[in-house]
Design a protein around this nucleic acid. Sequence first.
DNA 1: TTGCGTTGCGAACAGCGTTCGCGCAGGGTG
DNA 2: CACCCTGCGCGAACGCTGTTCGCAACGCAA
Lengths: 273, 273
Amino acid sequence: MSSADTADAAATGATEPTADTASTGRRARARRRTWIDLKAAALEEVREVGPAGLALRSVARRLGMSPAGLYRYVDSRDGLLTALIADGFHDLADHLEFALGAGGEVATDRERPAPEVPMRAGADADVAERLRAVGLAYRSWSVAHPNEFGLLFGDPIPGYAAPADGPTVEAMTRMGAALARPLLEAAAVGRLRGDRVLSDPSVAGPPGAMDPLLAPGIDPAVGPLLLLAWGRLHGQVSLEVFGHPHWLFPDGCEALFRADLERTLHDLGLVTP
Amino acid sequence: MSSADTADAAATGATEPTADTASTGRRARARRRTWIDLKAAALEEVREVGPAGLALRSVARRLGMSPAGLYRYVDSRDGLLTALIADGFHDLADHLEFALGAGGEVATDRERPAPEVPMRAGADADVAERLRAVGLAYRSWSVAHPNEFGLLFGDPIPGYAAPADGPTVEAMTRMGAALARPLLEAAAVGRLRGDRVLSDPSVAGPPGAMDPLLAPGIDPAVGPLLLLAWGRLHGQVSLEVFGHPHWLFPDGCEALFRADLERTLHDLGLVTP
DNA sequence: TTGCGTTGCGAACAGCGTTCGCGCAGGGTG
DNA sequence: CACCCTGCGCGAACGCTGTTCGCAACGCAA
Protein backbone atom coordinates (compact mmCIF):
# COMPACT_ATOMS: atom_id res chain seq x y z
CA MET A 1 0.00 0.00 0.00
CA SER A 2 2.97 2.24 0.38
CA SER A 3 3.32 2.94 -3.30
CA ALA A 4 -0.38 3.67 -3.70
CA ASP A 5 -0.19 5.98 -0.73
CA THR A 6 2.64 7.85 -2.33
CA ALA A 7 0.80 8.07 -5.61
CA ASP A 8 -2.26 9.48 -3.91
CA ALA A 9 -0.24 12.03 -2.02
CA ALA A 10 1.56 13.06 -5.19
CA ALA A 11 -1.23 15.54 -5.78
CA THR A 12 -0.73 17.13 -2.39
CA GLY A 13 3.02 16.85 -2.57
CA ALA A 14 3.38 15.21 0.80
CA THR A 15 2.88 11.67 1.97
CA GLU A 16 0.46 11.91 4.82
CA PRO A 17 -0.34 8.85 6.90
CA THR A 18 -3.08 6.82 5.30
CA ALA A 19 -6.48 6.94 6.89
CA ASP A 20 -6.72 3.20 7.36
CA THR A 21 -3.53 3.17 9.38
CA ALA A 22 -4.46 3.62 12.99
CA SER A 23 -3.64 7.24 13.70
CA THR A 24 -3.17 6.52 17.37
CA GLY A 25 -0.29 4.05 17.34
CA ARG A 26 3.16 4.91 18.60
CA ARG A 27 4.29 4.54 15.01
CA ALA A 28 1.85 7.07 13.66
CA ARG A 29 2.73 9.56 16.36
CA ALA A 30 6.41 9.27 15.52
CA ARG A 31 5.62 9.75 11.86
CA ARG A 32 3.61 12.86 12.47
CA ARG A 33 6.37 14.17 14.69
CA THR A 34 9.11 13.75 12.11
CA TRP A 35 6.83 15.19 9.43
CA ILE A 36 6.42 18.32 11.54
CA ASP A 37 10.14 18.42 12.24
CA LEU A 38 10.84 18.02 8.55
CA LYS A 39 8.65 20.94 7.60
CA ALA A 40 10.13 23.04 10.40
CA ALA A 41 13.65 22.33 9.20
CA ALA A 42 12.69 23.06 5.61
CA LEU A 43 11.00 26.29 6.65
CA GLU A 44 14.11 27.35 8.53
CA GLU A 45 16.12 26.64 5.42
CA VAL A 46 13.75 28.69 3.30
CA ARG A 47 14.00 31.54 5.79
CA GLU A 48 17.78 31.49 5.48
CA VAL A 49 18.42 30.89 1.79
CA GLY A 50 15.11 31.58 0.12
CA PRO A 51 12.78 29.27 -1.76
CA ALA A 52 15.15 28.79 -4.67
CA GLY A 53 17.95 27.72 -2.38
CA LEU A 54 16.11 25.00 -0.52
CA ALA A 55 18.04 21.74 -0.80
CA LEU A 56 16.61 18.42 0.30
CA ARG A 57 20.03 17.15 1.31
CA SER A 58 20.53 20.13 3.55
CA VAL A 59 17.19 19.52 5.22
CA ALA A 60 18.20 15.90 5.68
CA ARG A 61 21.47 16.97 7.30
CA ARG A 62 19.56 19.24 9.64
CA LEU A 63 17.43 16.31 10.73
CA GLY A 64 20.32 13.87 10.94
CA MET A 65 18.67 11.76 8.29
CA SER A 66 19.75 10.28 5.02
CA PRO A 67 18.65 12.16 1.91
CA ALA A 68 16.84 9.06 0.73
CA GLY A 69 15.00 8.83 4.01
CA LEU A 70 13.19 12.07 3.29
CA TYR A 71 11.39 10.41 0.43
CA ARG A 72 9.30 8.45 2.92
CA TYR A 73 7.65 11.77 3.74
CA VAL A 74 7.94 13.78 0.55
CA ASP A 75 7.59 12.75 -3.04
CA SER A 76 9.78 15.45 -4.52
CA ARG A 77 11.40 18.76 -3.74
CA ASP A 78 8.53 20.60 -5.36
CA GLY A 79 6.14 18.59 -3.25
CA LEU A 80 7.87 19.78 -0.11
CA LEU A 81 7.71 23.35 -1.40
CA THR A 82 4.02 22.90 -2.04
CA ALA A 83 3.48 21.75 1.54
CA LEU A 84 5.42 24.78 2.76
CA ILE A 85 3.32 27.05 0.58
CA ALA A 86 0.13 25.67 2.08
CA ASP A 87 1.53 26.14 5.57
CA GLY A 88 2.62 29.64 4.68
CA PHE A 89 -0.85 30.63 3.51
CA HIS A 90 -2.30 29.15 6.68
CA ASP A 91 0.19 31.10 8.77
CA LEU A 92 -0.66 34.33 6.98
CA ALA A 93 -4.36 33.54 7.33
CA ASP A 94 -3.82 33.03 11.06
CA HIS A 95 -2.32 36.48 11.37
CA LEU A 96 -5.08 38.09 9.37
CA GLU A 97 -7.77 36.38 11.40
CA PHE A 98 -6.03 37.33 14.60
CA ALA A 99 -5.96 40.94 13.42
CA LEU A 100 -9.64 40.67 12.60
CA GLY A 101 -10.21 40.09 16.27
CA ALA A 102 -10.80 36.40 16.37
CA GLY A 103 -9.14 36.64 19.75
CA GLY A 104 -7.19 33.87 21.32
CA GLU A 105 -3.68 32.90 20.45
CA VAL A 106 -2.50 31.97 17.01
CA ALA A 107 -1.99 28.26 16.75
CA THR A 108 1.69 27.46 16.41
CA ASP A 109 1.41 23.96 15.05
CA ARG A 110 -0.10 23.43 11.68
CA GLU A 111 -2.84 21.08 12.91
CA ARG A 112 -5.56 23.65 12.63
CA PRO A 113 -9.32 23.32 12.42
CA ALA A 114 -9.90 26.74 10.80
CA PRO A 115 -11.25 28.80 13.72
CA GLU A 116 -14.10 30.23 11.63
CA VAL A 117 -14.09 33.91 12.45
CA PRO A 118 -17.64 35.07 13.05
CA MET A 119 -19.19 37.63 10.76
CA ARG A 120 -19.89 40.96 12.39
CA ALA A 121 -22.95 42.62 10.94
CA GLY A 122 -23.45 45.56 13.25
CA ALA A 123 -21.03 48.32 14.22
CA ASP A 124 -20.87 50.15 10.94
CA ALA A 125 -17.93 52.40 11.76
CA ASP A 126 -16.02 49.34 12.91
CA VAL A 127 -15.70 47.91 9.43
CA ALA A 128 -13.15 50.50 8.33
CA GLU A 129 -11.07 49.74 11.38
CA ARG A 130 -11.25 46.04 10.59
CA LEU A 131 -10.07 46.55 7.03
CA ARG A 132 -7.28 48.77 8.32
CA ALA A 133 -6.28 46.06 10.77
CA VAL A 134 -6.24 43.27 8.21
CA GLY A 135 -4.32 45.40 5.71
CA LEU A 136 -1.67 46.31 8.23
CA ALA A 137 -1.44 42.68 9.29
CA TYR A 138 -0.91 41.68 5.66
CA ARG A 139 2.02 44.05 5.45
CA SER A 140 3.53 43.30 8.85
CA TRP A 141 3.52 39.56 8.25
CA SER A 142 5.08 40.03 4.83
CA VAL A 143 7.92 42.29 5.88
CA ALA A 144 8.59 40.05 8.87
CA HIS A 145 8.78 36.95 6.64
CA PRO A 146 10.26 38.11 3.37
CA ASN A 147 11.37 34.72 2.15
CA GLU A 148 8.02 33.16 2.94
CA PHE A 149 6.36 36.04 1.12
CA GLY A 150 8.52 35.17 -1.85
CA LEU A 151 7.50 31.56 -1.46
CA LEU A 152 3.81 32.44 -1.56
CA PHE A 153 3.80 35.27 -4.07
CA GLY A 154 7.08 35.09 -5.96
CA ASP A 155 7.89 33.11 -9.03
CA PRO A 156 5.71 30.05 -9.18
CA ILE A 157 7.44 26.70 -9.30
CA PRO A 158 8.21 26.19 -12.98
CA GLY A 159 5.87 23.78 -14.63
CA TYR A 160 3.80 23.29 -11.54
CA ALA A 161 0.11 24.07 -11.28
CA ALA A 162 -1.57 23.64 -7.93
CA PRO A 163 -4.52 21.27 -8.08
CA ALA A 164 -7.73 23.18 -7.61
CA ASP A 165 -8.79 21.09 -4.64
CA GLY A 166 -5.35 20.73 -3.12
CA PRO A 167 -4.31 22.05 0.28
CA THR A 168 -2.50 24.96 -1.35
CA VAL A 169 -5.54 26.63 -2.80
CA GLU A 170 -7.57 25.68 0.25
CA ALA A 171 -5.11 27.57 2.43
CA MET A 172 -4.97 30.45 0.01
CA THR A 173 -8.74 30.56 -0.01
CA ARG A 174 -8.73 30.83 3.77
CA MET A 175 -6.35 33.77 3.55
CA GLY A 176 -8.44 35.39 0.84
CA ALA A 177 -11.56 34.95 2.93
CA ALA A 178 -9.94 36.71 5.87
CA LEU A 179 -8.86 39.52 3.59
CA ALA A 180 -12.33 39.75 2.11
CA ARG A 181 -14.32 39.61 5.31
CA PRO A 182 -14.39 43.34 6.08
CA LEU A 183 -15.51 44.08 2.55
CA LEU A 184 -18.20 41.42 2.72
CA GLU A 185 -19.40 42.81 6.02
CA ALA A 186 -19.52 46.30 4.57
CA ALA A 187 -21.41 45.06 1.56
CA ALA A 188 -23.84 43.20 3.79
CA VAL A 189 -24.84 46.42 5.51
CA GLY A 190 -24.81 48.38 2.27
CA ARG A 191 -21.86 50.56 3.17
CA LEU A 192 -19.60 49.41 0.35
CA ARG A 193 -19.78 51.64 -2.68
CA GLY A 194 -18.11 50.63 -5.89
CA ASP A 195 -19.12 53.56 -8.06
CA ARG A 196 -16.13 55.65 -7.06
CA VAL A 197 -13.59 53.18 -8.29
CA LEU A 198 -15.54 51.20 -10.86
CA SER A 199 -17.22 53.79 -13.01
CA ASP A 200 -17.69 51.22 -15.71
CA PRO A 201 -19.95 48.49 -14.33
CA SER A 202 -18.76 46.06 -16.99
CA VAL A 203 -15.83 45.21 -14.74
CA ALA A 204 -18.08 42.97 -12.69
CA GLY A 205 -16.96 39.44 -13.21
CA PRO A 206 -19.19 36.52 -14.02
CA PRO A 207 -21.75 36.20 -11.25
CA GLY A 208 -20.93 33.55 -8.75
CA ALA A 209 -17.36 33.20 -9.90
CA MET A 210 -16.01 33.80 -6.44
CA ASP A 211 -18.79 32.05 -4.58
CA PRO A 212 -16.95 28.89 -3.67
CA LEU A 213 -14.11 30.98 -2.26
CA LEU A 214 -16.01 33.25 0.03
CA ALA A 215 -19.64 32.73 0.77
CA PRO A 216 -22.48 31.66 -1.50
CA GLY A 217 -24.75 34.32 -2.85
CA ILE A 218 -22.49 37.31 -2.37
CA ASP A 219 -22.91 40.44 -4.41
CA PRO A 220 -20.95 39.81 -7.62
CA ALA A 221 -19.81 43.43 -7.55
CA VAL A 222 -17.74 42.89 -4.42
CA GLY A 223 -15.32 40.55 -6.19
CA PRO A 224 -13.65 43.20 -8.33
CA LEU A 225 -13.55 45.57 -5.37
CA LEU A 226 -11.84 42.92 -3.30
CA LEU A 227 -9.31 42.25 -6.02
CA LEU A 228 -8.70 45.95 -6.43
CA ALA A 229 -8.08 46.47 -2.73
CA TRP A 230 -5.90 43.37 -2.52
CA GLY A 231 -3.91 44.55 -5.49
CA ARG A 232 -3.25 47.90 -3.86
CA LEU A 233 -2.06 46.34 -0.63
CA HIS A 234 -0.08 43.72 -2.47
CA GLY A 235 1.67 46.16 -4.76
CA GLN A 236 3.08 48.25 -1.97
CA VAL A 237 4.09 45.19 0.02
CA SER A 238 5.60 43.41 -2.95
CA LEU A 239 7.76 46.35 -3.94
CA GLU A 240 8.85 46.80 -0.35
CA VAL A 241 9.61 43.17 0.45
CA PHE A 242 11.53 42.57 -2.75
CA GLY A 243 13.59 45.64 -1.96
CA HIS A 244 12.84 47.66 -5.03
CA PRO A 245 12.00 50.99 -3.42
CA HIS A 246 14.21 50.40 -0.41
CA TRP A 247 17.34 51.87 -1.95
CA LEU A 248 15.15 54.64 -3.26
CA PHE A 249 12.84 55.50 -0.40
CA PRO A 250 14.35 54.14 2.76
CA ASP A 251 12.01 54.55 5.70
CA GLY A 252 8.69 55.78 4.44
CA CYS A 253 7.32 52.41 3.37
CA GLU A 254 4.97 51.94 6.29
CA ALA A 255 3.70 55.51 6.22
CA LEU A 256 3.14 55.26 2.49
CA PHE A 257 1.34 51.98 2.92
CA ARG A 258 -0.94 53.51 5.56
CA ALA A 259 -1.68 56.46 3.30
CA ASP A 260 -2.64 54.25 0.37
CA LEU A 261 -4.71 52.04 2.64
CA GLU A 262 -6.51 55.08 3.96
CA ARG A 263 -7.20 56.29 0.45
CA THR A 264 -8.51 52.87 -0.47
CA LEU A 265 -10.90 53.03 2.47
CA HIS A 266 -12.08 56.35 1.10
CA ASP A 267 -12.41 55.03 -2.43
CA LEU A 268 -14.58 52.20 -1.15
CA GLY A 269 -16.79 54.57 0.81
CA LEU A 270 -15.80 53.20 4.19
CA VAL A 271 -14.64 56.49 5.72
CA THR A 272 -16.82 59.54 5.82
CA PRO A 273 -15.25 62.49 4.00
CA MET B 1 44.65 40.73 -18.70
CA SER B 2 41.89 38.21 -19.03
CA SER B 3 41.74 37.44 -15.35
CA ALA B 4 41.73 41.10 -14.39
CA ASP B 5 39.02 41.67 -16.94
CA THR B 6 36.95 38.94 -15.39
CA ALA B 7 37.54 40.33 -11.92
CA ASP B 8 36.43 43.76 -13.01
CA ALA B 9 33.38 42.40 -14.70
CA ALA B 10 32.51 40.36 -11.64
CA ALA B 11 30.65 43.39 -10.36
CA THR B 12 28.58 43.58 -13.50
CA GLY B 13 28.26 39.86 -13.82
CA ALA B 14 29.34 39.71 -17.42
CA THR B 15 32.70 39.81 -19.09
CA GLU B 16 32.46 42.59 -21.58
CA PRO B 17 35.29 43.19 -24.03
CA THR B 18 37.98 45.33 -22.50
CA ALA B 19 38.25 48.89 -23.62
CA ASP B 20 41.90 48.66 -24.57
CA THR B 21 41.15 45.84 -26.96
CA ALA B 22 40.40 47.38 -30.29
CA SER B 23 36.62 47.21 -30.49
CA THR B 24 36.76 47.19 -34.28
CA GLY B 25 38.76 44.03 -34.94
CA ARG B 26 37.17 41.00 -36.48
CA ARG B 27 37.87 39.24 -33.21
CA ALA B 28 35.94 41.77 -31.15
CA ARG B 29 33.02 41.66 -33.51
CA ALA B 30 32.83 37.90 -33.23
CA ARG B 31 32.96 38.17 -29.49
CA ARG B 32 30.14 40.69 -29.36
CA ARG B 33 28.17 38.48 -31.68
CA THR B 34 28.44 35.37 -29.54
CA TRP B 35 27.77 37.45 -26.43
CA ILE B 36 24.50 38.61 -27.98
CA ASP B 37 23.70 35.07 -29.09
CA LEU B 38 24.44 33.83 -25.60
CA LYS B 39 22.06 36.28 -23.99
CA ALA B 40 19.42 35.52 -26.59
CA ALA B 41 19.69 31.80 -25.91
CA ALA B 42 19.59 32.37 -22.16
CA LEU B 43 16.58 34.65 -22.53
CA GLU B 44 14.79 32.02 -24.56
CA GLU B 45 15.55 29.52 -21.84
CA VAL B 46 14.21 31.87 -19.18
CA ARG B 47 11.07 32.38 -21.24
CA GLU B 48 10.52 28.63 -21.36
CA VAL B 49 11.46 27.41 -17.91
CA GLY B 50 11.57 30.53 -15.79
CA PRO B 51 14.45 32.22 -14.02
CA ALA B 52 14.89 29.43 -11.48
CA GLY B 53 15.17 26.83 -14.21
CA LEU B 54 17.90 28.49 -16.24
CA ALA B 55 20.80 26.06 -16.65
CA LEU B 56 24.15 27.11 -18.07
CA ARG B 57 24.69 23.71 -19.60
CA SER B 58 21.40 23.96 -21.42
CA VAL B 59 22.34 27.37 -22.80
CA ALA B 60 25.65 25.90 -23.90
CA ARG B 61 23.86 23.08 -25.71
CA ARG B 62 21.66 25.61 -27.45
CA LEU B 63 24.74 27.41 -28.72
CA GLY B 64 26.61 24.22 -29.59
CA MET B 65 29.28 25.15 -27.13
CA SER B 66 30.94 23.44 -24.23
CA PRO B 67 29.69 24.41 -20.77
CA ALA B 68 33.17 25.56 -19.86
CA GLY B 69 33.31 27.75 -22.93
CA LEU B 70 30.55 29.93 -21.57
CA TYR B 71 32.84 31.09 -18.82
CA ARG B 72 34.77 33.16 -21.33
CA TYR B 73 31.70 35.38 -21.44
CA VAL B 74 30.10 34.96 -18.05
CA ASP B 75 31.62 34.67 -14.63
CA SER B 76 28.79 32.73 -13.02
CA ARG B 77 25.19 31.74 -13.48
CA ASP B 78 24.07 34.61 -11.27
CA GLY B 79 26.16 36.94 -13.37
CA LEU B 80 24.32 35.84 -16.47
CA LEU B 81 21.03 36.34 -14.68
CA THR B 82 22.15 39.81 -13.69
CA ALA B 83 22.91 40.66 -17.31
CA LEU B 84 19.48 39.37 -18.29
CA ILE B 85 17.89 41.47 -15.57
CA ALA B 86 19.57 44.58 -16.89
CA ASP B 87 18.46 43.76 -20.41
CA GLY B 88 14.96 43.11 -19.14
CA PHE B 89 14.72 46.48 -17.46
CA HIS B 90 16.02 48.11 -20.63
CA ASP B 91 13.43 46.25 -22.68
CA LEU B 92 10.65 47.31 -20.35
CA ALA B 93 11.98 50.87 -20.38
CA ASP B 94 11.92 50.79 -24.18
CA HIS B 95 8.26 49.87 -24.16
CA LEU B 96 7.39 52.53 -21.63
CA GLU B 97 9.26 55.19 -23.56
CA PHE B 98 7.64 54.07 -26.77
CA ALA B 99 4.25 54.39 -25.10
CA LEU B 100 5.23 57.83 -23.90
CA GLY B 101 5.43 58.82 -27.52
CA ALA B 102 9.13 58.82 -28.09
CA GLY B 103 8.15 57.70 -31.57
CA GLY B 104 10.27 55.57 -33.81
CA GLU B 105 10.76 51.88 -33.50
CA VAL B 106 11.93 50.13 -30.38
CA ALA B 107 15.52 49.04 -30.74
CA THR B 108 15.77 45.29 -30.89
CA ASP B 109 19.44 44.89 -30.03
CA ARG B 110 20.61 45.82 -26.62
CA GLU B 111 23.22 48.32 -27.84
CA ARG B 112 21.22 51.35 -26.93
CA PRO B 113 22.21 54.94 -26.24
CA ALA B 114 19.15 55.78 -24.09
CA PRO B 115 17.03 57.81 -26.49
CA GLU B 116 16.35 60.55 -23.91
CA VAL B 117 12.65 61.16 -24.19
CA PRO B 118 12.01 64.88 -24.19
CA MET B 119 10.02 66.45 -21.40
CA ARG B 120 6.69 67.86 -22.43
CA ALA B 121 5.76 70.91 -20.42
CA GLY B 122 2.66 72.16 -22.18
CA ALA B 123 -0.53 70.34 -23.07
CA ASP B 124 -2.01 69.99 -19.62
CA ALA B 125 -4.74 67.57 -20.48
CA ASP B 126 -2.21 65.39 -22.22
CA VAL B 127 -0.45 64.38 -19.03
CA ALA B 128 -3.29 62.13 -17.91
CA GLU B 129 -3.25 60.40 -21.24
CA ARG B 130 0.49 59.93 -20.97
CA LEU B 131 0.23 58.35 -17.53
CA ARG B 132 -2.55 56.13 -18.83
CA ALA B 133 -0.37 55.08 -21.72
CA VAL B 134 2.66 54.28 -19.63
CA GLY B 135 0.57 52.36 -17.09
CA LEU B 136 -1.08 50.25 -19.75
CA ALA B 137 2.31 49.64 -21.34
CA TYR B 138 3.64 48.47 -17.98
CA ARG B 139 0.87 45.91 -17.78
CA SER B 140 0.94 44.81 -21.40
CA TRP B 141 4.68 44.17 -21.35
CA SER B 142 4.37 42.24 -18.09
CA VAL B 143 1.56 39.94 -19.14
CA ALA B 144 3.28 39.36 -22.47
CA HIS B 145 6.55 38.41 -20.75
CA PRO B 146 5.56 36.69 -17.52
CA ASN B 147 8.85 34.94 -16.93
CA GLU B 148 10.84 38.09 -17.56
CA PHE B 149 8.52 39.88 -15.16
CA GLY B 150 9.39 37.24 -12.61
CA LEU B 151 13.03 37.75 -13.39
CA LEU B 152 12.80 41.48 -12.74
CA PHE B 153 10.35 41.57 -9.85
CA GLY B 154 10.21 38.07 -8.42
CA ASP B 155 12.37 36.53 -5.77
CA PRO B 156 15.76 38.20 -5.80
CA ILE B 157 18.75 35.98 -6.38
CA PRO B 158 19.60 34.61 -2.94
CA GLY B 159 22.56 36.32 -1.39
CA TYR B 160 22.99 38.70 -4.27
CA ALA B 161 22.78 42.46 -3.98
CA ALA B 162 23.08 44.51 -7.13
CA PRO B 163 25.90 47.03 -6.98
CA ALA B 164 24.48 50.53 -6.79
CA ASP B 165 26.33 51.67 -9.88
CA GLY B 166 25.95 48.48 -11.84
CA PRO B 167 24.07 48.14 -15.11
CA THR B 168 21.14 46.56 -13.29
CA VAL B 169 20.16 49.59 -11.28
CA GLU B 170 21.07 51.86 -14.17
CA ALA B 171 18.55 50.02 -16.33
CA MET B 172 15.99 49.98 -13.55
CA THR B 173 16.52 53.69 -13.09
CA ARG B 174 15.79 54.23 -16.75
CA MET B 175 12.56 52.31 -16.39
CA GLY B 176 11.66 54.22 -13.25
CA ALA B 177 12.34 57.50 -14.99
CA ALA B 178 9.98 56.59 -17.82
CA LEU B 179 7.33 55.62 -15.30
CA ALA B 180 7.85 58.85 -13.41
CA ARG B 181 7.94 61.21 -16.34
CA PRO B 182 4.22 61.97 -16.56
CA LEU B 183 4.11 62.67 -12.84
CA LEU B 184 7.12 64.93 -13.06
CA GLU B 185 5.56 66.77 -15.98
CA ALA B 186 2.35 67.21 -14.03
CA ALA B 187 4.25 68.45 -11.02
CA ALA B 188 6.18 70.87 -13.19
CA VAL B 189 2.99 72.57 -14.33
CA GLY B 190 1.46 72.38 -10.86
CA ARG B 191 -1.26 69.94 -11.78
CA LEU B 192 -0.17 67.14 -9.44
CA ARG B 193 -1.98 67.23 -6.11
CA GLY B 194 -0.85 65.00 -3.29
CA ASP B 195 -3.30 66.12 -0.64
CA ARG B 196 -5.95 63.64 -1.66
CA VAL B 197 -3.81 60.60 -1.11
CA LEU B 198 -1.23 61.87 1.37
CA SER B 199 -3.22 63.63 4.04
CA ASP B 200 -0.27 63.30 6.37
CA PRO B 201 2.62 65.29 4.88
CA SER B 202 5.12 63.38 7.02
CA VAL B 203 5.18 60.72 4.33
CA ALA B 204 7.52 62.85 2.27
CA GLY B 205 10.87 61.17 2.14
CA PRO B 206 14.20 62.81 2.74
CA PRO B 207 14.56 65.66 0.28
CA GLY B 208 16.75 64.83 -2.65
CA ALA B 209 16.65 61.11 -2.00
CA MET B 210 15.38 60.39 -5.48
CA ASP B 211 17.34 63.12 -7.20
CA PRO B 212 19.98 60.95 -8.82
CA LEU B 213 17.29 58.69 -10.18
CA LEU B 214 15.09 61.19 -11.88
CA ALA B 215 16.12 64.75 -12.27
CA PRO B 216 17.91 67.07 -9.85
CA GLY B 217 15.83 69.49 -7.89
CA ILE B 218 12.49 67.78 -8.20
CA ASP B 219 9.75 68.37 -5.71
CA PRO B 220 10.43 65.94 -2.85
CA ALA B 221 6.70 65.38 -2.51
CA VAL B 222 6.49 63.69 -5.90
CA GLY B 223 8.60 60.73 -4.76
CA PRO B 224 5.97 59.20 -2.49
CA LEU B 225 3.28 59.85 -5.07
CA LEU B 226 5.33 58.07 -7.69
CA LEU B 227 5.90 55.14 -5.42
CA LEU B 228 2.22 55.02 -4.56
CA ALA B 229 1.17 55.01 -8.18
CA TRP B 230 3.81 52.46 -9.10
CA GLY B 231 2.68 50.25 -6.24
CA ARG B 232 -0.91 50.33 -7.46
CA LEU B 233 0.03 49.40 -11.00
CA HIS B 234 2.49 46.82 -9.81
CA GLY B 235 0.10 45.14 -7.41
CA GLN B 236 -2.52 44.47 -10.04
CA VAL B 237 0.06 43.29 -12.53
CA SER B 238 1.92 41.15 -10.05
CA LEU B 239 -1.21 39.33 -8.92
CA GLU B 240 -2.26 38.83 -12.52
CA VAL B 241 1.08 37.67 -13.90
CA PHE B 242 1.72 35.24 -11.08
CA GLY B 243 -1.71 33.81 -11.68
CA HIS B 244 -3.21 34.40 -8.29
CA PRO B 245 -6.52 35.94 -9.31
CA HIS B 246 -6.67 34.14 -12.61
CA TRP B 247 -8.44 31.07 -11.30
CA LEU B 248 -10.65 33.41 -9.36
CA PHE B 249 -11.45 36.21 -11.75
CA PRO B 250 -10.77 34.98 -15.23
CA ASP B 251 -11.11 37.75 -17.77
CA GLY B 252 -11.60 41.00 -15.95
CA CYS B 253 -7.96 41.68 -15.20
CA GLU B 254 -7.45 44.32 -17.84
CA ALA B 255 -10.73 46.08 -17.11
CA LEU B 256 -9.95 46.07 -13.42
CA PHE B 257 -6.48 47.41 -14.10
CA ARG B 258 -7.90 50.22 -16.19
CA ALA B 259 -10.41 51.08 -13.46
CA ASP B 260 -7.74 51.28 -10.79
CA LEU B 261 -5.50 53.29 -13.08
CA GLU B 262 -8.34 55.70 -13.73
CA ARG B 263 -8.99 56.05 -10.03
CA THR B 264 -5.29 56.71 -9.46
CA LEU B 265 -5.41 59.47 -12.04
CA HIS B 266 -8.30 60.93 -10.08
CA ASP B 267 -6.52 60.56 -6.75
CA LEU B 268 -3.54 62.43 -8.16
CA GLY B 269 -5.73 65.22 -9.48
CA LEU B 270 -4.97 64.53 -13.13
CA VAL B 271 -8.55 64.10 -14.30
CA THR B 272 -11.13 66.70 -13.59
CA PRO B 273 -13.89 65.29 -11.41
C1' DT C 1 6.22 -16.25 17.52
C1' DT C 2 5.42 -15.40 12.74
C1' DG C 3 4.66 -12.49 9.17
C1' DC C 4 3.79 -8.06 7.04
C1' DG C 5 4.06 -3.32 6.39
C1' DT C 6 6.72 0.71 7.47
C1' DT C 7 11.05 3.09 8.08
C1' DG C 8 15.59 4.37 7.26
C1' DC C 9 19.98 3.76 4.87
C1' DG C 10 23.97 3.08 1.53
C1' DA C 11 25.01 3.12 -3.02
C1' DA C 12 24.32 4.63 -7.32
C1' DC C 13 22.94 7.57 -11.56
C1' DA C 14 22.22 11.69 -14.04
C1' DG C 15 22.49 16.47 -14.11
C1' DC C 16 24.12 20.82 -12.35
C1' DG C 17 27.78 24.95 -11.58
C1' DT C 18 32.47 25.66 -11.69
C1' DT C 19 37.70 25.14 -12.24
C1' DC C 20 41.90 23.78 -14.45
C1' DG C 21 45.11 23.00 -18.07
C1' DC C 22 45.73 22.16 -22.73
C1' DG C 23 45.66 23.03 -27.83
C1' DC C 24 44.51 25.74 -31.55
C1' DA C 25 43.86 29.58 -34.30
C1' DG C 26 43.90 34.90 -35.28
C1' DG C 27 46.14 39.21 -35.02
C1' DG C 28 49.67 42.51 -34.28
C1' DT C 29 54.67 43.11 -34.64
C1' DG C 30 59.54 42.13 -36.26
C1' DC D 1 56.90 36.14 -44.32
C1' DA D 2 57.73 34.39 -39.51
C1' DC D 3 57.13 35.25 -34.86
C1' DC D 4 54.95 35.15 -30.39
C1' DC D 5 51.19 36.11 -27.76
C1' DT D 6 46.68 36.65 -26.57
C1' DG D 7 42.08 35.00 -26.44
C1' DC D 8 38.99 31.28 -27.36
C1' DG D 9 37.02 26.77 -26.88
C1' DC D 10 37.25 22.21 -25.05
C1' DG D 11 37.75 17.78 -22.22
C1' DA D 12 38.14 16.22 -17.82
C1' DA D 13 37.36 16.59 -13.26
C1' DC D 14 35.29 17.96 -8.47
C1' DG D 15 31.60 18.61 -5.46
C1' DC D 16 27.01 19.43 -5.17
C1' DT D 17 22.10 18.44 -6.26
C1' DG D 18 17.44 15.49 -6.84
C1' DT D 19 16.00 10.92 -7.20
C1' DT D 20 15.76 5.67 -7.38
C1' DC D 21 16.67 1.06 -5.92
C1' DG D 22 17.34 -2.87 -2.97
C1' DC D 23 18.35 -4.27 1.58
C1' DA D 24 18.26 -4.38 6.63
C1' DA D 25 15.92 -3.37 10.88
C1' DC D 26 11.96 -2.35 13.44
C1' DG D 27 6.79 -1.86 15.16
C1' DC D 28 2.69 -4.00 15.19
C1' DA D 29 -1.12 -7.24 14.63
C1' DA D 30 -2.50 -12.06 14.29
